[in-house]
């Protein structure tokens, strides 16, 4: 036990060091873009995991928070000239407010109401923004090109975006670390396991589901603002559609919902597969990428419903078991 913690700390330090050095080694814009997108989905998947994994409230509408994040900062910038960093904070506030409104009617109910309500929220927003001419309507908004600087949250190089995406992922993981090691984490898991028992013990389930949902909405909106500043073009179809909501939930579920490392594993597997199959096999109406993608999802759903994290855990346990056997024989 005493040896395990330092070893994990070493692994973490090494992993972070590699992430910091990657921009020196990889200069190809395509690969940088792949990594930036992956980091975005680490944050999105983990933020989803707080609600869908730890609190056990399945959301199919996280694109709503993402889109609100992208649109809040972008509209503030293009219509009122507000700095995008401030826009990012405003985006967080807007997402928290919407999370509050959606949670209020549905957290009182158990079962699938939350999942249904989140689908509705995402679709209502998407259709609303499609028809909202002031906000660009269905054709979306192009962000004005500005000077490349940290202040303007715009860069010619991909490297600064890489570090900002990495920082967002680290912040998200920091919050996850706090959550899993504080009473909020215990309560959320207790609520997921047996909401009535948790209630009988004096836990207020609504309160803790709210904490999870509001934090999740905030981070998702931050990533939305980041996306807008990175791509410099947003429209409802790319920031609020149901397929984005589903991709976010898949990252967490395939990686292992309710686990600490699950969303990280999920993002690092799913996003590269998604992007690579799209660039090498997609296009020309062949859509092989979707076949591979779908097959992978089915394979994991059938053989590994606990996600990649569980697969890794099982493999580790088996190895540890074998090691113990060896020492046992030696003794």
């Amino acid at each position: 036990m005493a040896r395990r913690i330092p070893r994990q700390a070493w692994a973490l330090g090494l992993f972070l060091l590699i992430l910091l050095l990657i921009p020196l080694a990889i200069t190809n814009r395509y690969w940088m873009n792949l990594l930036i997108t992956t980091f975005m989905f680490v944050s999105l998947g983990q933020a989803w995991n707080w609600v869908g994994g730890y609190a056990g409230q399945i959301s199919f509408g996280h694109a709503a928070f993402f889109g609100l994040g992208a649109y809040t900062s972008t509209l503030l910038l293009t219509k009122f000239g507000v700095n995008p960093w401030l826009g990012m904070l405003a985006a967080g506030v807007v997402a928290i407010a919407v999370a509050f409104l959606i949670g209020w009617p549905v957290f009182r109910l158990q079962g699938h109401y939350f999942a249904i309500a989140t689908i509705a929220l995402g679709e209502i927003l998407r259709i609303g923004f499609d028809n909202w001419e002031w906000a660009g309507g269905a054709s979306g908004i192009e962000l004005p090109i500005m000077e490349s600087s940290f202040l303007h949250f715009q860069f010619f190089s991909k490297v600064p975006y890489y570090f900002i995406a990495l920082a967002l992922a680290l912040i998200t993981y920091g919050i996850t670390w706090w959550m899993t090691n504080s009473k909020v984490g215990y309560y959320l898991r207790a609520i997921r396991e047996d909401q009535d028992a948790a209630r009988a013990l004096g836990v207020n389930p609504t309160k803790y589901k709210y904490i999870a949902l509001m934090l999740s909405a905030m981070i998702t909106a931050f990533v939305g603002t980041f996306y807008a500043q990175y791509i410099l073009f947003i429209d409802p179809a790319s920031t609020m559609a149901l397929d984005l909501s589903i991709l976010i939930s898949l990252v967490a579920v395939l990686g292992g919902a309710g686990s600490f490392l699950g969303p990280l594993l999920g993002a690092f597997l799913l996003i590269p597969i998604n992007e690579l199959t799209r660039s090498f096999l997609g296009g020309g109406g062949r859509a092989y990428n979707l076949i591979i993608y779908g097959a992978l999802i089915m394979a994991i759903a059938i053989w590994q419903p606990g996600g990649l994290w569980e697969l890794l855990e099982r493999w580790r346990k088996r190895r540890r078991g074998r090691k113990q056997e060896v020492t046992h024989e030696a003794a």
């Binding site: 215990y186 047996d194 009535d196 028992a197 948790a198 009988a200 013990l201």
Partner: peptide, 28 residues
């Protein structure tokens, strides 16, 4: 919070949480 606790029928433990964590939830 007023000092009235119920141990429910069928125990209703959080079975995938540790003994220690179950007790912590009880201390809400």
């Amino acid at each position: 919070g007023m000092g009235l606790a119920l141990t429910p029928e069928g125990r209703r433990l959080f079975s995938r949480m540790s003994v220690y964590e179950n007790l912590l939830v009880g201390a809400t």
